[in-house]
């Protein structure tokens, strides 16, 4: 494992059994996150980005799913490197919340409706940091202040339904940060919020990252959010990474037709010179994971596809610098 890496996922394969057949939701995914860095995992629904994050947390529902291969190497606080894919569940519980935290998409249902907010935040604190009830509550109050919730002392005694969606997501972030994790996985954390609140939450996450120095794995389908948040991007399609690079490079010159297609779908990101006035949409849909096309999995929807693309599947090949693309014709994108 690289010296400055916090997490290295290597050749991860997560499979599901459905209707008696086995298919890979994540197939040979590799990426690394450095300390203090934000990596965005981008893709459509069904591209395998959420399954990747669930695999890191070892939360893939089993049955029907399981991690079938590869390694998830994580540098824990003690400095030791552990393979999360093979860690016993007991040790995994220490990692969850304590070293890797997660924020979910639905702030409306991510809190238990029956318990006061303060209780739910302090549950994690007491679990991992062994504080008493009173100290844990005080710590919860501090955390609510940290995520810019006004009157944190009052809000501790609120039930989740008394808070707005944005407030609940702030509470979720406070819970995620309660044990000073070194990695936060944010799975579409702003998708369920309206745009102004989205911007506030993203600002909050950025400033917290500056303050606390954690790394973020940001999972989203929203390229606008990626541009705002991420240092580097990995674009996923049909369980594979098709392109990676720094956010600046990928956005200024995508090197995979799928990435290019995603960008052309967004009105604000059509650069000058692109003639088309109508908004582009990538034809077709994500292929069924149990019936993937031969060769390049994106070929059937690709503007640049040629007969050669249906041969062997292209590797995720280095194309200079920190950039990789899984396209034979990347130079022409």
């Amino acid at each position: 494992m690289n010296g400055d890496s916090l997490l290295e996922v290597i050749d991860l394969r997560t499979v599901f059994v459905s209707g008696g057949r086995l298919f890979s939701a994540v197939d040979g995914v590799s990426f690394a996150i450095r300390k203090g860095e934000t990596l965005a995992l981008v893709g459509e629904s069904g591209s395998g980005k959420s399954v990747t994050s669930l695999s890191i947390m070892r939360l893939v529902p089993n049955p029907p799913g399981r991690i079938a291969g590869g390694g998830i190497f994580f540098r824990s606080r003690s400095g030791a490197v552990e393979d999360l894919a093979r860690l016993p569940l007991r040790s995994m519980r220490r990692v969850r919340g304590g070293e890797i935290a997660m924020i979910f998409q639905e702030p409306m249902t991510s809190l238990n409706p029956l318990f006061r907010v303060g209780f739910q935040i302090s549950e994690a604190i007491r679990l991992h940091r062994g504080l008493g009830r009173r100290e844990a509550l005080r710590e919860a109050e501090r955390l609510l202040g940290l995520v810019d919730i006004p009157d944190p002392g009052e809000r501790l005694w609120d039930f989740p339904h008394q808070l707005s969606g944005g407030m609940r997501q702030r509470v979720m972030i406070a819970m995620a940060l309660s044990c000073q994790p070194s990695l936060v996985i944010a799975d579409e954390p702003t998708t369920a919020l309206d745009v102004t609140i989205q911007a506030q939450i993203l600002d909050l996450m950025r400033s917290l990252q500056r303050e606390l120095g954690m790394s973020i794995l940001f999972i989203t389908h929203n390229l606008g959010v990626v541009a705002e948040m991420a240092d580097r991007v990995a674009v996923m399609y049909a369980g594979r990474i098709v392109e990676t690079g720094t956010t600046r490079d990928v956005f200024s010159a995508p090197r995979h037709p799928y990435t290019r297609g995603l960008m052309d779908c967004i009105p604000g990101l059509i650069r000058e010179g692109t003639a088309s006035r109508r908004l582009y949409s990538i034809p077709g849909g994500m292929p069924d994971a149990s019936r993937l096309p031969d060769g390049c999995v994106f070929a059937p929807r690709c503007r640049l596809a040629e007969p050669g693309c249906a041969g062997a599947e292209p590797e995720l090949a280095g194309i200079g610098g920190d950039r990789f693309s899984r396209c034979r014709r990347w130079k022409e994108v």
Binding site: M57, L59, R93, R96, G97, F104, T109, L111, A124, M175
Partner: peptide, 14 residues
């Protein structure tokens, strides 16, 4: 299936 169960698991609650 509700998200707060996943949220609890993610926090390492036994």
């Amino acid at each position: 299936e509700l998200a707060f169960i996943d949220a609890a698991r993610v926090l390492g609650v036994p």
